[in-house]
């Protein structure tokens, strides 16, 4: 753990919070946020082979904010419709059942659970990163001639533990005390978010390959994943590429190319060039998801 930039009192506070949260997470003595109703239903509908799109569209229509988001996304460059999409029906038709289900799920999770007062900007950055990871995940899978369906969901949910940690920190700190610095929170996030994400994924009964990607996507652990859908390794590279999209100060292209995950995916320089070329399109899509 790197506590270099923190002062001794902050350090002590972090240590205390860390051990409290670790115990809570390990003993499962947590009051985990519930999966929003819409997201639960979306998961049910998309997991039901007999479900049709009318059920999903009815569900989305119940939630005005969600419907608006979906309309905006359908008009984004990522889904580049030939003519502007004006109705929800049309956007549903354009995006298709699977994407729509993933979007409805993401948007409802995002707006339903993780609205943390005081850290809106940081949470927004986390979501930006997650969306870019989902979009890049699809492209990585496609390059590997691998089915791309699973990659998006793994990507958008891989860091679900991060907002949960913020949530838990706030639950565990005195409401009267001054707001914790982001550096402090980030230190705890780095330490515990994978564990927290895993717990949340389990509690929400997310599909097994998605749970695996959440637990194992980091560079050090993707080797441990066994699912043939390769969600963890794909999400690992997607997360690095997404960082380059949302945070210009992160690794540059040469550093990304030198990562072991690139070799493990058997990507040649030309494969990486093709992925880097998508940067702008992905950036635009991410913005349209968020604004």
């Amino acid at each position: 753990m790197s506590l270099a930039s923190t002062c001794p009192t902050e350090q002590a506070e972090i240590e205390a919070l860390l051990s409290r949260l670790t115990i809570q997470l390990e003993q499962e003595a947590l009051d985990l946020p519930l999966l929003p109703v819409v997201a639960t239903q979306v998961l049910q509908i998309s997991g039901d082979p007999n479900a049709d799109v009318t059920k999903l569209s009815a569900l989305i229509q119940q939630d005005q904010a969600l419907a608006g988001q979906i309309l905006r996304i359908a008009n984004s460059p990522a889904y580049a419709a030939r003519s502007p999409i004006v109705s929800l029906q049309q956007s549903i038709a354009w995006l298709g059942m699977n994407i729509l289900a993933s979007l409805a799920f993401t948007v409802s999770v995002q707006s339903g659970v993780f609205k943390v007062k005081g850290y809106e900007k940081e949470i927004q950055a986390l979501w930006r990163q997650a969306l870019a990871t989902g979009l890049y995940g699809k492209e990585i899978a496609r390059r590997n001639r691998h089915n791309v369906e699973n990659a998006f969901l793994c990507g958008i949910l891989h860091t679900i533990g991060k907002p949960l940690i913020i949530h838990l920190i706030l639950q565990n700190t005195d409401k009267e005390s001054p707001q914790l610095s982001w550096t402090m929170i980030d230190t705890i996030i780095q330490e515990l978010s994978i564990l927290a994400g895993g717990k949340l994924a389990e509690a929400w009964q997310l599909p097994e390959p998605v749970q695996e990607a959440i637990r194992f996507y980091p560079d050090e652990t993707y080797h441990q994943a066994t699912s043939p859908t390769k969600g963890a390794i794909i999400t690992c590279l997607a997360d690095h590429l997404a960082s380059a999209v949302v945070d210009p100060s992160s690794l540059d292209e040469a550093a990304i190319c030198a990562l072991p995950v690139v070799q493990d995916l058997n990507f040649y320089p030309e494969d990486m060039d093709a992925l880097f070329e998508l940067k702008e399109t992905i950036q635009q899509s991410v913005e349209s998801f968020l604004t």
Binding site: P49, G96, N98, K138, A141, R142, R145, H146, N147, V148, E149, N150, P209, P228, T229, K230
Partner: peptide, 20 residues
């Protein structure tokens, strides 16, 4: 071929569910 809805004999092997 998008390896998502229209697959080839490589990507069919990574289907995550059986289509109807």
């Amino acid at each position: 071929i998008d390896h998502e809805n229209i697959l080839d004999s490589d990507s069919i092997l990574s289907l995550v569910y059986l289509p109807k």
